[in-house]
Amino acid sequence: MKRSARGAGTEASSGLLLVSPPAIYALVLLAAPLATIILYSFFTDGYLEVIREFTFANYRETWVNPLYRTVMLRSLLVSVLVTLATVLLAFPVAYFVSFHVDPSRKSLWLFLITIPFWTSYLIRVFLWKVILGYNGVVNSGLLSLGIIDEPLTFLLYNTNSVVITLAHAYAPFAILPIFVALEKIDRSLLEAGQDLGETRFATFCRVTLPLAMPGVVASVLIVFIPTIGDYVTPQLVGGPEGRMVANLIQLQYLRLDNYPLGSAIAVSAMGIVAVISLIFLFLTRRYLKGPK
């Protein structure tokens, strides 16, 4: 009796009822605030308060002012470089763990890979400053080996150092989705490829790689999207040449108290990221369809 009472209609309503606490939380504290900053980005900044007059001036400022445009383009460039570096470096590791590690030890490898990701982000970034600095680990190492005569100065306080540090920070994020995709590949497909006379490399290119693409696409997005908004890394290791959009947003909000302009910069950055991600998804769409 009780069982028959739980038909399709009640299943939907109990599902909705159950999901409502987290959904309402996200609606009130995420969706509504996001809508608010979009609204604010069209308001005018007054002396002590925001004037509720509709304007495009903030967006004009964000897109035309060379200062903001440079930072925006640099953030984009850094994100693209970090994503490329992270995903390319991560792929062989994910491949190794999925194909060459004994199944019983895979969890251990994944655990080892994820640990650095969870440990004190601030201190890790600061230590990159120590590694790349004028008296840093790299410089003192190269000096004592006699490879260089004086410390390299291009390592710290520029875009390079931001890219290296972020690539390090997001490494585990890139490995996991690729690993999951590789794990799903039916191993008999690879044997079939080789039985049909393909070399190992050809099998990799024609079977493994296309099947791993959903994971690659996921890791590209999961690295690319948050990277553009990173604040700590450019602040600590970027120097004046390495400032990114998050530093600009922080400046507008906390120092200059210009919420509308800060919002316009934030919304623009999100918009650019969303558009690029959608284009990327569109370009890779043929790999993302399920098996036919």
Partner: peptide, 17 residues
């Protein structure tokens, strides 16, 4: 969504509200 959204966006939007 917060899994991929840059934290700074979450932070400033909550701050404004």
């Amino acid at each position: 969504l917060p899994l991929v959204l840059p934290e700074i966006i979450v932070a400033v939007s909550l701050l404004v509200v």
